[in-house]
Simulated assay, not measured.
Amino acid sequence: MIRPELLSQILRWREVLVGVGALAVGLWLALTSFGGTRWVGVVVAIGGIAIMREGIMRLRRPSDGGGAGVVNVTERQITYLSGTGGGAVSLDILSGVAVERDGRGGATWHLMDTEGRQVAIPADAEGARAIFDALAAIPGLSEEEAVAALKAEGRGRQTIWSKGPKRLS
């Protein structure tokens, strides 16, 4: 039997561990094989590095749960439900993303759309980590910048991304 605390840490680090395993197998194949197998090893090693990078990025994200409301992401729409309100915004008409810090360690996502609606979502709402995955589809939005804004000290509002004017090509 594995203690629950240890199991939760293993599950938290599982992506990084899978990436390390793939990297090790890939390097072993690349260094000990010949011909086409060597190139398969190189590809597996590169895949392991990519999995490790994504796992490390996920570890840096703030944990969710314990806050007010529930976030649901389905088919390019982020929906926030709570007892005091909520709302939904489609990624297709998203015009801006900002993070507001309250100075006490809490943060709130602000998602604005082109129709003037704004949804404020506490960063610790249940399922709020899914916002990162949904926003990954937005070109020009940096996950590193979003994580830094959520973990920043003090009060304030930081715009993470805003939709620029369309250019004619």
Rank of each mutant, 00 (worst) to 15 (best):
G65S: 07
G140L: 05
I121N: 07
S142R: 06
I131W: 04
V71G: 05
E144H: 01
L17M: 15
S82N: 11
L141M: 04
R53A: 14
V70Q: 05
V71E: 04
T114E: 13
R12L: 13
I56A: 08
M57C: 03
A136T: 12
V40G: 00
G106T: 06
V18F: 14
D133W: 12
E143G: 00
D64H: 12
L59K: 07
R3Y: 12
M57W: 14
S63K: 15
R58M: 14
G26I: 04
P139N: 05
A24K: 08
A134N: 09
T32F: 13
T108D: 02
E145S: 03
E144G: 02
R3I: 05
E144Q: 02
L150N: 04
H110E: 10
G87A: 07
L94C: 09
V25Y: 01
T84Q: 15
W28D: 09
S95K: 11
E145F: 00
D102W: 07
G69R: 03
S95I: 06
L59T: 08
V147D: 06
G85S: 14
R61A: 09
A149P: 08
I93Q: 10
E144I: 01
W13N: 11
S95E: 15
G21F: 08
S82T: 13
T74D: 14
I93C: 05
G26Y: 08
Y80C: 11
V89E: 03
V73H: 06
V71D: 03
A146D: 00
A149Y: 02
G85F: 15
G66A: 01
A148M: 01
S142E: 09
A128H: 04
T74Y: 11
G106E: 12
A107S: 14
W39K: 00
R58F: 12
G85R: 15
Y80H: 10
N72V: 14
D64T: 12
R12Y: 10
